[in-house]
């Protein structure tokens, strides 16, 4: 982690995650297209990554000592953009250009467009194998102190490429990979278990030779603890199955697969922002 990010309390991190969710809702409304549920559900994981776990430098995105973060499910990139802006990679005003012509914030992430975006993704199932290649490369250079984090969706585990990578990482005992599955149980056509059942997902990963940790992916402390624990597992690559609530923080989006690939309209955005500002009605908003 960079110096200024050390020692933040969980409470402070939760506040940051909420700020990121506010930005997410605003940018998705502005863009008029994009994915809402996944990014909202991932806000806590991305906050934990960028504000506690990752060794990185927003002023020097290519810092040779940085940890790597691969986003395999590229459609969830709004959460990465919002988190990077929050971390200081670029001004938040640029978030308004999401998906616009000429923007660095492409609909799906492109390495060549935005410094700090480690790889280009969107077509599903190829993030874990790229992470495995990166982990192998770091090992060849005796640079295993740099961690390779990779975030996958659950739906993309329908893709065979993911399991090819699972076998390879296990064969080479790539203990410098920390993989996180965003287990939100939805994909475009509906619940994962009706589209193409993934369960028992834990057994699958264990059968492929991975160490599995299951957590509440909307609990920042749990995310941090799991990743730190993963660093102590030396014999196997680690898959953290992070159970998240799709649309987390916006009640009318939560658990509803229809919000997978849809942005809020203006009215819905106003309602969502109010909910987020009042923490679901628990506090009075200063912005009312």
């Amino acid at each position: 982690m960079s110096k200024e990010q050390k020692g933040r309390s969980i409470h402070e991190l939760e506040k940051i995650a909420n700020d990121i969710r506010l930005d997410l809702v605003k940018m998705l409304e502005q863009a008029g297209s994009g994915h809402s549920a996944g990014p909202l559900g991932l806000a806590d994981i991305f906050t934990a990554l960028y504000f506690n776990l990752l060794k990185h430098d927003p002023d020097n995105p290519d810092w040779p000592e940085r940890d790597i973060l691969v986003l395999s499910n590229g459609h969830c990139v709004p959460i990465r953009y919002a988190t990077m802006a929050q971390a200081g990679y670029f001004d938040k005003i640029e978030l308004k250009t999401l998906r616009e012509f000429g923007s660095r914030l492409q609909g799906h992430p492109e390495r060549k467009k935005l410094p700090g975006m480690e790889t280009t993704s969107g077509p599903l199932g190829s993030g874990l194998s790229q992470a495995a290649g990166m982990a192998l490369g770091l090992r060849m250079d005796n640079a295993q102190h740099r961690w390779v984090y990779v975030v996958l969706s659950d739906g993309e585990q329908d893709e065979g490429n993911t399991w090819e990578a699972a076998m390879l990482a296990s064969k080479y005992k790539l203990n410098n990979i920390i993989a996180i599955t965003d287990r939100n149980n939805i994909q475009i056509d509906g619940p994962t278990e009706s589209v193409m059942p993934l369960e028992n997902l834990r057994d699958k990963w264990e059968a492929f030779g991975w160490h599995v940790i299951e957590i509440d992916g909307n609990n920042i402390e749990a995310v941090i603890d799991a990743c730190n624990m993963a660093k102590a597992i030396v014999e196997k690559p680690v898959m953290i199955i992070a159970h998240t609530i799709p649309g987390k923080g916006v009640s009318f989006m939560e658990y509803d697969f229809h919000w997978h690939g849809m942005p809020p309209n203006h009215e819905q955005a106003v309602k969502a922002l109010k909910e987020l500002r009042t923490l679901g009605g628990k506090i009075r908003s200063e912005h009312e």
Partner: peptide, 12 residues
């Protein structure tokens, strides 16, 4: 599929 994507990661 893994062949070329692992290759991409190594190139990165």
């Amino acid at each position: 599929q893994n062949l070329v994507t692992v290759g991409s990661g190594l190139a990165a």
